[in-house]
């Protein structure tokens, strides 16, 4: 309570999209923050801390996602998660499976 929700839009860059490994990395990173994390794709809202939920987005390359964070560390959470999606996961070499 009392925390505003902050949002940020990110685009999935990697040609393989958010498959199992990136979804795992994303959910783990999200889980490090106290804030509630929601990922939105075309109006569908899922829990960003759940790998199963993130996988249901089937986010392919070019997909626009909205990240929402609500809580005391919301800004830091969005910063870290946006960097993960737009920079770290865009590096195919790291996660190409």
């Amino acid at each position: 309570m009392g925390h505003e929700t902050v949002t940020r839009q990110v685009t999935v860059r990697s040609s393989n999209g958010l498959h199992a490994r990136p979804a795992d990395l994303f959910a783990r990173q999200a889980g490090k923050f106290e804030s509630k994390i929601v990922v939105v794709k075309e109006g569908v809202r899922v829990d960003g801390k759940s790998i199963l939920d993130v996988l249901t987005l089937a986010a392919t390359q070019g997909t626009l996602l909205t990240l929402e964070a609500t809580g005391p560390d919301a800004e830091a959470a969005l910063e870290a998660l946006a960097r993960l999606i737009e920079i770290d996961l865009a590096n195919e070499e790291m996660i190409d499976h």
Binding site: G17, H19, A20, L57, A58, A59, T60, Q61
Partner: peptide, 9 residues
């Protein structure tokens, strides 16, 4: 890769 993602979905 798209088919793989849709199966996982």
């Amino acid at each position: 890769p798209g088919d793989h993602l849709r199966a996982l979905e």
